[in-house]
């Protein structure tokens, strides 16, 4: 079991290495990236491409990322131990 896992891991590393150094461009076309980089200034009005992408092209991702942070905060509040029930009153 352990040996099989190690073999699998080594194969995964090898594939990763080949993908990274064997040229990712041939595997996946990056026309979308070129289009974003060429057009983001007119489309979004931002001069920082990252902001243009995460607040305009991919705003849906941003919404759910913020929701994820909110849910994790709620979870932490739920699971952290109250020292007495008066914790929230002066907290």
């Amino acid at each position: 079991m352990r040996r099989a896992l190690m073999v699998l891991w080594a194969a995964l590393l090898l594939v990763l290495f080949m993908v990274v150094y064997g040229g990712l461009d041939q595997v996946l076309p990056n026309t979308l990236q070129e289009q974003y980089v060429a057009n983001f200034q007119e489309d979004t009005g931002a001069r920082n491409a990252v902001t243009g992408i995460y607040l305009d092209y991919r705003v849906f991702d941003t919404l759910f990322e913020a929701l994820m942070l909110l849910v994790s905060v709620i979870g932490i509040i739920h699971f952290s131990v109250h020292e007495g029930e008066g914790g929230d009153r002066h907290g």
């Binding site: 607040l55 909110l70 932490i76 952290s80 907290g91």
Partner: peptide, 25 residues
């Protein structure tokens, strides 16, 4: 949007930190 996300993230991380510090016994 940047300002709103900034407010939200700073509040969230502060809550996480202070919850951990003061309530996690």
């Amino acid at each position: 949007m940047n300002a709103l996300i900034g407010i939200k993230v700073s509040c969230g991380l502060s809550i996480v930190f202070f919850r951990f510090v003061f309530y996690e016994s």
